[in-house]
Design a protein around this nucleic acid. Structure first.
Length: 457
RNA sequence: GGCCACGUGGCGGAGUGGUGACGCAGCGGCCUACAAAGCCGUAUACGCCGGUUCGAUUCCGGCCGUGGCCUCCA
C-alpha cells in the first residue's frame, strides 16, 4: 500500500507524494504560550509527532523538515502579564519550556524548527505591505484588514459558503470592516501594550499572520503538509491560505491539510473556555508519559476520543504486558527496522488502532516461542513499539520506578525477605499478610521459581 | 439557522458488499500452598426506517441521537 493521508481540502484520502522527496516539509500550529497546556493540545502534538516519524521512515531522517511554532504575542498573553505582573517574555519563555519538556516526557521528537511570532515581526510587516500593495488588504482606524473579496477560494478548506458564514456569524462586526468576514492583519496597541512600529502606526500582528510568515521563511512558500486541530480549519487556516496565496501570486500554502479530532470530557469538548480541561503536567504526575501517549493514540487521530481514567488504566495494562516480555531481552537504545504490519497500518492515514493490534499480534507470537526465536521475536516487538514512540524505558524502571508516595525499594526488599523466611516455614498467613499489605500500597508481588518479584501497580 | 463529523459487544476501538480485528473487563481451564503474571478456550455488537443488491454493518435516501465549527481554542 502507498502512503496516504486524509486531506481536509480534498475531503478524501490522497496518496502522499511530496513536492521534493529530499526535502519533505511539515508545519504544525503550536500553542499560545501563556499557561499550562491541556491534554488536547498534547493530542495534536503527539499525532503529528507520529506523522513526523512516518515521514522520516519513508523519506529518511535528513529529508524531513518539521516546524512547530509558538505564538508568543497575543491578547491572552498580554492579559496574563497584566494580571501577574510578570514580563511577557518571562511568561512565554517559561511556558514554552514547560511545553517542550512535557512533550519530551510523551516521547515526542523535537521539531527541527520552533519559530516564534515575535522573531518574525519585520517579515510580517513586509507581508502586510505586500497585501496592501496588491489590493488584498486595507487600512481602517489604525487596523489593517484582509479583504476576503480578494481571494476567490476563501472558504474552500472549511467548506463554508461566504454569504452564509456572514449571515450566521455570531461575531459583532467592527465598523472599520468593509466586509464582515474580513480579518485583522495588524491592530493598534495601546501605550501599555507591547507593540512594534509599522507604517500604520505602533501595533501588533493579528493571529493568523505569523504562520504564513514563518512557513515561508522556515520552510518555503508551498509546503507539503500543514497540520493542526480541527477547530483551526476556520478561521485560522482559511485565513492563512488566503493571505499567503494572495501574497504569493496564488501559490498554495500547503499541498495537504491534516486536522486532528478532539478530546472529549464526558459529552463535551475539552476546552479552555468551558473550563473542563485536564492539564498535561498534572497527568504526568500520576501516569508515565508512555501511558498518556498510548491513550492519545488509542483512537484514530480524526475520531473524537473520550478522555477518562479508565482509558489511562487500560493503556497502562497494555503497556505492562509488553514490558513484561521486553524484560526478557537485554535493553538497548537501538531499534531495528519496524515490521511491515506496523508500517503499513500507519501508512494508511496513521491508523494507530490497527498498528496497536499489530503490536499485540507480534507479542502473541513471541510469547509462544522459546530460546533464540523468542528473543528475536521480542526484539521485533521492540522495533515495532519504538516506531510508534513506545518502549523507551528499561523494563526494570518501568515496573519499579517512580515511588511517589509508595514504599521505597529498600522497605519493599526488607518485607520480601521477611516474607521469604515466612514461606520457608510455610507460615502462609504471615506471607499473605505481607503481600496484602504491600498490595494496599500499590505493590504487586509475584512468586516465581527463582524467588519473589515486585512491581508498582 | 448554516456547514461538518459521528452512532459497532459490558467498556475502549478498527474495518469490511458475503456471519463481523484488537485491547480491557467477564466466564471456564492449566499453572500456583493461595495469589499475581502467563498460557489455552469462550459468550456478547454494527441507532431506527426504507431503497439498491443474490446478499449491507459496509452503498443511497429519510429519521432519531450525539458532538464539532460558524468567537479565542489542538
Amino acid at each position: 500500500m502507498t502512503l496516504q493521508f486524509y486531506d481536509t481540502m480534498a475531503r478524501e484520502k490522497r496518496a502522499f507524494e511530496p513536492a521534493d522527496p529530499t526535502r519533505v516539509t511539515m508545519y504544525v500550529c503550536g500553542p499560545t504560550v501563556y499557561n499550562y497546556t491541556h491534554i488536547g493540545n498534547a493530542r495534536s502534538a503527539i499525532v503529528f509527532d507520529l506523522l513526523y516519524r512516518v515521514l522520516r521512515h519513508h523519506f529518511g531522517e535528513a529529508h524531513v523538515v518539521y516546524a512547530r511554532n509558538f505564538t508568543d504575542i497575543d491578547d491572552k498573553i498580554i492579559k496574563a502579564s497584566k494580571e501577574t505582573g510578570a514580563a511577557i517574555a518571562d511568561i512565554t519563555n517559561k511556558f514554552a519550556d514547560i511545553y517542550r519538556a512535557e512533550l519530551q516526557d510523551l516521547n515526542a521528537l523535537s521539531p527541527g524548527f520552533e519559530p516564534r511570532a515575535t522573531d518574525h515581526i519585520p517579515e510580517m510587516i513586509e507581508l502586510v505591505e505586500t497585501l496592501i500593495k496588491q489590493g488584498a488588504a486595507y487600512e481602517g482606524e489604525g487596523h489593517v484588514l484582509f479583504s476576503i473579496e480578494a481571494f476567490d477560494d476563501y472558504g474552500r478548506l472549511s467548506g463554508v459558503d461566504r454569504d452564509e458564514m456572514i449571515a450566521g456569524a455570531r461575531v459583532e462586526v467592527a465598523p472599520y470592516k468593509k466586509n464582515p468576514a474580513d480579518f485583522v492583519l495588524w491592530k493598534p496597541s495601546k501605550d501599555d501594550e507591547p507593540g512594534w512600529d509599522a507604517p500604520w502606526g505602533r501595533g501588533r500582528p493579528g493571529w493568523h499572520l505569523e504562520c504564513s510568515v514563518m512557513i515561508e521563511k522556515q520552510l518555503g512558500r508551498t509546503i507539503d503538509i500543514h497540520c493542526g486541530g480541527q477547530d483551526l480549519r476556520f478561521p485560522h487556516h482559511e485565513n492563512e491560505i488566503a493571505q499567503s496565496a494572495c501574497a504569493h501570486q496564488g501559490a498554495p500554502l500547503a499541498r495537504y491539510w491534516l486536522h486532528n479530532g478532539f478530546l472529549r470530557m464526558g459529552s463535551d469538548k475539552m476546552s479552555k473556555s468551558i473550563g473542563n480541561v485536564v492539564l498535561t503536567h498534572e497527568l504526568l504526575q500520576d501516569w508515565p508519559g508512555e501511558v498518556i501517549r498510548w491513550a492519545l493514540l488509542s483512537a484514530h487521530y480524526r475520531q473524537p476520543l473520550e478522555w477518562t481514567d479508565e482509558l489511562l488504566r487500560q493503556s497502562k495494562r497494555q503497556l505492562d504486558r509488553f514490558y513484561r516480555l521486553l524484560e526478557e531481552i537485554e535493553f538497548s537504545d537501538e531499534a531495528g527496522a519496524p515490521p511491515a504490519s506496523i508500517v503499513l497500518a500507519l501508512d494508511d492515514d496513521l491508523n494507530t488502532p490497527e498498528a496497536f493490534a499489530g503490536l499485540h499480534e507480534i507479542r502473541d507470537i513471541a510469547s509462544q516461542l522459546d530460546g533464540e526465536a523468542r528473543k528475536n521475536a521480542i526484539a521485533r516487538l521492540r522495533s515495532a513499539g519504538r516506531y510508534l514512540g513506545f518502549f523507551a524505558h528499561r523494563p526494570g524502571d518501568w515496573f519499579k520506578g517512580a515511588a511517589g508516595e509508595g514504599p521505597t525499594e529498600m522497605e519493599i526488599e526488607a518485607l520480601l525477605q521477611e516474607r521469604a523466611n515466612a514461606r520457608k516455614t510455610r507460615d502462609f498467613a504471615r506471607s499473605d499478610q505481607i503481600r496484602d499489605d504491600l498490595a494496599a500500597k500499590g505493590i504487586i508481588i509475584e512468586d516465581g521459581a527463582d524467588g519473589a518479584r515486585w512491581r508498582r501497580e
